[in-house]
Design a protein around this nucleic acid. Structure first.
Length: 484
RNA sequence: GGCGCAUUCGUCUAGUGGCCUAGGACGUGGCCCUCUCAAGGCCAAGAUCACGGGUUCGAAUCCCGUAUGCGCUACCA
């Protein structure tokens, strides 16, 4: 390879940034960064009807969130722009006309009705679907409503070499005369893609596996135009748990949804990089820098991968635990602002969050979990609501538990240094003194002050909540125990 | 239907002719640690390498069939 490495991510702005699609962007970017090449973003907005407003911004937001930067493309420009295909219409039209003039393509005047009719007949006769070449040799010129079609050779085969799959061969006669230029003046994907990849000096086309069947026609286009084809690498698809193409019904598919749910960008990079690529037989946890260093096309697999949510959760937990305490607080703040009950004063007290989070860090799978009713609300609210039946220790019963708490309460009130160590030094011997197991004392206190049965360690929790709140909540619990 | 791609534990994967009685990770089960929950440590179950033929002294690895899955078959990308 003497040519500089130039790869591109060419999304169509027809929706949200799908994780499968983003994985493709990631692989292209990793490839470019590994080999010191260029990564280009090109917006393929050639389907006017399906283009959705805001989609470009969402895609770019997703890329930025992951830290995937582009050397050329929207916002940054570059020497081969514009990078929106809708701004390059003249180029495609000119090339399409040249293709017609050179005998590689032709104008087709067939109406949508005729095409529909043709397809219906083909289907009824169990014939392979495809354009019947009605206009192929009519020598038609441009006209309103006309399209330009590629004149596909009727004999022979077309073979291309795929970096991941080896040689792939197609029989030309099975390929129909696809549309190159639509009647609205926009190019189809095929035309625009080939022209732009050439004009933008793309060296490697790395795209999803679903493009394999159209590649031979792209090769024909390159040949007709006298362009040198790039290297092709078709990447495995990402599937849902039921082995079908990953889609909404499998759950979250937009990268931005994962951000909302509290997955870290470093998790997404690591996890997505492992969907269809591996470094070796052992290494799974890698930061971006390491992945870039190790990413080669040779290690991209050929098999489709199923998106494994459980593993994602595990990995996110690992990355959350690795965060510096202060960093965790920064990242968790937006979730707390958004999800803590309204009764909690805004802005949320950052210093206080800084005390809570060390207790939560090794328990979080996502950042969003830092602000759930069943995890942390009790740290922030004045009052807590919970099922009081959870209060009593099973053996002691309501009365016994009440009795125990009444003995504990004054000792807590007497304690001047209400921090974890003194608390433990007080409560543990006290339990023994009362002839109880530590858990029998700790559990009711835990429930009384948090309303929960599963929490971070009791003493740290009490320290963070503070003496006043703990005492108050235990007193409230005593009232409830009396009522049980 | 046609064409194409693929096929190793439930899942992600390692493996490119002998290192494989197939390795790691997630998940699952058990044990340990332990005030609960996590985290962590240890152990276990889990793949006749889709199936059937070859080639070879020897195949998960090479070849050929079959099956299955997925993709494509638009004036969508």
């Amino acid at each position: 390879m003497t040519e500089p490495i130039r790869v591109r991510y060419a999304p169509s702005p027809t929706g949200f940034p799908h994780v499968g699609n983003i994985r493709t962007a990631l692989f292209n970017w990793l490839f470019a960064r590994h080999y010191g090449g260029s990564f280009i973003v090109r917006i393929e907005d050639t389907d006017v009807a399906r283009t959705v407003p805001g989609a470009v911004e969402n895609i770019l937001t997703g890329l930025r969130w992951l830290g995937i930067d582009w050397d050329e493309g929207p916002e940054v420009g570059g020497p081969y722009g514009p990078y929106f295909q809708s701004e390059r219409l003249d180029i495609y039209k000119e090339v399409a006309e040249k293709l017609v003039a050179d005998g590689y393509a032709y104008y087709c005047h067939c109406s949508a009705e005729r095409l529909a009719d043709m397809r219906a007949k083909q289907e009824a006769a169990h014939l392979p679907p495809g354009y019947d070449k009605h206009c192929r040799d009519l020598g038609l010129g441009p006209a309103p409503g006309a399209v330009v079609r590629l004149k596909v050779p009727e004999t022979g085969t077309t073979t291309f070499h795929d970096l991941i799959r080896g040689d792939v061969t197609f029989e030309n006669r099975l390929l129909d005369d696809m549309v190159l230029l639509k009647s609205d003046g926009y190019p189809t994907y095929h035309l625009a893609n080939v022209i732009d990849d050439h004009l933008m000096h793309i060296s490697h086309v790395m795209r999803a596996e679903e493009w394999i069947p159209s590649t031979p026609r792209h090769i024909m286009l390159y040949n007709a135009l006298g362009f040198e084809p790039p290297v092709f690498a078709h990447m495995p698809m990402i599937l849902g748990p039921d082995h079908s193409k990953l889609s909404k019904r499998h759950g979250s598919v937009s990268l931005l949804e994962y951000r909302e749910q509290g997955y870290l960008p470093e998790t997404m990079i690591n996890f997505l990089s492992l969907l269809g690529w591996s470094y070796d037989d052992k290494t799974e946890l890698m930061n971006v820098k390491e992945i870039i260093e190790r990413f080669t096309a040779e290690r991209i697999c050929q098999t489709a991968a199923i998106f494994n949510k459980e593993k994602l959760d595990w990995m996110n937990g690992v990355y959350i635990r690795q965060l510096a305490p202060n960093d965790l607080v920064d990242r968790v703040m937006p979730y707390l602002e958004k999800n803590l009950p309204e009764s909690v004063k805004r802005p949320i007290d950052r210093d206080y969050v800084g005390k809570v989070m060390p207790l939560m860090q090794e328990r979080l799978k996502t950042l969003e979990e830092s602000a759930k009713p069943e995890t942390t609300w009790f740290f922030f609210t004045d009052e807590i609501e919970y099922d009081h039946a959870l209060l009593p220790d099973k053996k002691l019963g309501a009365a016994g538990t009440k009795d125990m708490l009444e003995k504990v309460l004054p000792k807590l009130e007497e304690l001047s240094d209400f921090t974890a160590e003194p608390l433990e030094a007080l409560l543990r011997p006290l339990a023994a003194e009362l002839g109880l197991k530590a858990g029998q004392v700790f559990a009711p206190i835990r429930t009384a002050i948090s309303g929960l049965t599963a929490t971070p360690p009791l003493f740290g929790m009490m320290e963070v909540l503070g003496k006043e709140k703990c005492i108050k909540r235990i007193k409230d619990a005593l009232v409830f125990l009396g009522q049980l």
